[in-house]
Design a protein around this nucleic acid. Structure first.
Length: 609
DNA sequence: GCAAGGTC
């Protein structure tokens, strides 16, 4: 019997379908001499400190450096505290029974570091010794699966990938567990002050932005605007220069040749520029972009959006949600016309879906090289029925974006008129001449500059027009805004882009901080720890959060560079570099951060609980 | 009581 193990049930089902295996059993499927089983993500985790004899939270245990890490079954929170997840225990038993019977094991967990780890932890935990082969595919279409099976790799080809994954896991444990206990113990409060490679830089980003925003001193500046009349249609033009003082602006205003000052035709048109600008459709959604959009449009938190999307996925209405790719491959693209066809009777989007069935589709989101483990989120084509308002909203964002992504460019006329009246003034305006993809949601352009006129009258160079009004504009410079969930998710994705060290920057370029699957959970952790809170749509630090930030802000653990450094080393391990060298460095770092925090925590400015 | 990672 050949046993195929996938990372999750949906993938096992897809593969079974390709093989024509349809018999459903408890925890697996079978047919044609094959058995298809699955995990539910990580079933096993590195065992907690007490399993190595580190009981309680005691300074004498620190730093905790287990000689050999153990694995333990994933836990769930219940009213009796943390207990083994019974569903996980059951699935492990099923996998064990299947592995015992197996002649061949084929590993079909996701093609990446964590996918490798998910399988290996199961394999080693079950003490399985049978050889295994690896299926390595990046898309789950029938053809990709078949091709992958013709091309199975020896399992040992991925030993170094497992090494890098295991190192990632152990390093996060060592640094996170020790730093958390060190700070919590030394703070003298009895609360949990957690720290980690991802959560602490995230907290630092929120805190530093908050402090920057609060200490920002707005600068006043002045501009002059004039109103110009073209045969009854009045438009506004603004001075090209900004002034620090009112007096300087007043000089300009006094020079305006307006009607009231005795100039019937004092607005001289120096130049008129009109150029079309093509705006390509947005890319399909990955999880993060969808969370950002849902936060902006519907006010949903990242966690809410993930849950709603997971729900739609379980109802088979959308494809795999925790994707980090905004692209699809050519194979999936081939199915798009049929997919669009299915929504041509849709209440809100039907008209646009119908339109797309008759035109050449935009292929901006089609790029197989940019599809990682999973492709962008798409509707499956199943019709939703009786969804809750929230789920419907998320489904509509997915469907709407799908229509947008394959739609035509939006074409805008951008007009710029330069007027001389004393000094130079500029009027700019944008008119959409062909909506293209913007017809889907038909919403106003997000950030229109406030100087913009919706549309400008037709004027010609050399014309002289009356200036009917003038005004002094008093404005203020603005601070960078506080983070909200949308901007924080974006910042986590792009974290590392500003690292000075080129190698570290490169190592982080595809990752950022955290992963699509974990970012919502990171935000929730910071909320649960009482480090941050939601204030309207913003995420702001609490007193506790700021106090922790003050203690750790100059340490590596608060910086995105730490992840960059790890990613660089982990990639080296994947291509064969020494595992023990890195592990020794991590131990050294663990010892030093633990010592530092044991001292620093005492200086924590916290009210006792 | 604690990390980050994956997923029902």
């Amino acid at each position: 019997m050949k046993v195929i193990i996938a990372e999750k049930p949906s993938v096992a089902r897809e593969i079974a379908k390709v093989f024509g295996a349809t018999t459903k059993k408890d925890g697996y499927m079978e047919g044609k001499g094959f058995t298809f089983t699955w995990a539910f993500g990580h079933l096993l985790q590195l065992a907690p400190p007490q399993e190595y004899g580190f009981y309680g939270w005691n300074v004498h245990n620190l730093p905790m450096l287990p000689a050999k890490f153990k694995l333990s079954i994933r836990k769930v929170k219940t009213k009796d505290g943390l207990v083994e997840d019974p569903g996980v225990r059951k699935q492990l038993n099923i996998i064990q029974a299947l592995f015992d019977e197996a002649t061949d094991i084929i590993v079909a967990t996701d093609a990446g570091r964590e996918g490798e780890l998910i399988f290996r932890y199961i394999y080693y935990y079950l003490k399985c010794k049978k050889p295994f082969k690896r299926l390595w595919i990046s898309s789950q279409t029938d053809e990709a699966i078949k091709e992958g099976f013709r091309n199975l790799k020896p399992g040992s080809d991925y030993d170094t990938l497992f090494n890098s994954a295991h190192c990632r896991s152990q390093s996060d444990w060592l640094v996170g567990m020790n730093a958390t206990q060190a700070l919590s113990i030394s703070s003298g409060t009895r609360s949990v002050l957690s720290l980690g490679r991802v959560q602490t830089p995230t907290l630092a980003m929120i805190c530093s932005r908050y402090l920057e925003n609060k200490s920002f001193v707005p600068q006043l500046f002045y501009q002059v605007s004039i109103q110009v009349d073209k045969e009854g249609q009045v438009f506004r033009a603004v001075s090209t220069e900004n002034f620090k003082s009112k007096e300087e602006a007043q000089v300009l205003i006094d020079q305006v040749e307006d009607v009231a000052s005795g100039f019937p035709l004092g607005g001289h048109i120096l130049a008129v520029e009109a150029k079309p600008r093509k705006e390509p459709p947005p890319l399909l959604h990955d999880l993060s972009s969808l969370q950002q959009e849902a936060n902006k449009k519907n006010g949903f938190t990242a966690d809410q959006t993930l849950n709603l999307l997971q729900n739609l996925y379980e109802s088979k209405l959308v494809t795999y949600p925790r994707t980090g790719s905004r692209y699809i491959g050519d194979d999936v693209f081939a199915g798009i016309p049929a997919l669009l066809e299915k929504f041509k009777d849709h209440e809100t989007f039907g008209k646009q879906a119908l339109f797309l069935t008759g035109v050449k589709l935009n292929k901006r989101s089609v790029n197989v090289k940019k599809v990682t483990d999973h492709h962008a989120v798409l509707p499956t084509g199943e019709k939703p029925y009786n969804l809750s308002a929230d789920k419907q909203a998320i489904f509509d964002l997915v469907l709407g974006r799908t229509l947008e992504a394959f739609h035509q460019e939006c074409i805008k006329e951008i007009t710029k008129i330069t007027v001389q009246s004393g000094a130079k003034y500029i009027a700019s305006g944008t008119v959409i001449s062909s909506a293209g993809w913007r017809a889907v949601f038909n919403e106003p352009d997000e950030e229109k500059k406030d100087e913009d006129n919706a549309s400008l009258p037709k004027v010609k160079e050399g014309e002289n027009l009356p200036v009917v009004d003038k005004a002094l504009l008093e404005k203020q410079t603005k601070p960078k805004p506080l983070y909200n969930e949308a901007s924080l998710l974006k910042a986590l994705e792009t974290a590392g882009k500003e690292i000075d060290d080129e190698e570290l920057r490169y190592a982080m370029k595809d990752s950022g901080l955290g992963t699509p699957a974990t970012r919502a959970a990171i935000i929730e952790t910071l909320l649960k720890r009482d480090y941050i809170l939601r204030e309207k749509k913003n995420l702001v630090p609490t007193q506790t959060g700021l106090a922790v930030y003050e203690v750790v802000k100059d340490h590596k653990i608060a910086q995105a560079e730490l992840t960059g450094n790890w990613e660089k080393r982990l990639e080296e391990i994947r291509s064969g570099a020494s595992v023990t060298d890195f592990q020794e460095e991590i131990k050294t770092y663990t010892r030093s951060i633990t010592q530092e925090l044991l001292k620093a925590g005492a200086g924590l400015k916290l009210k006792p609980v």
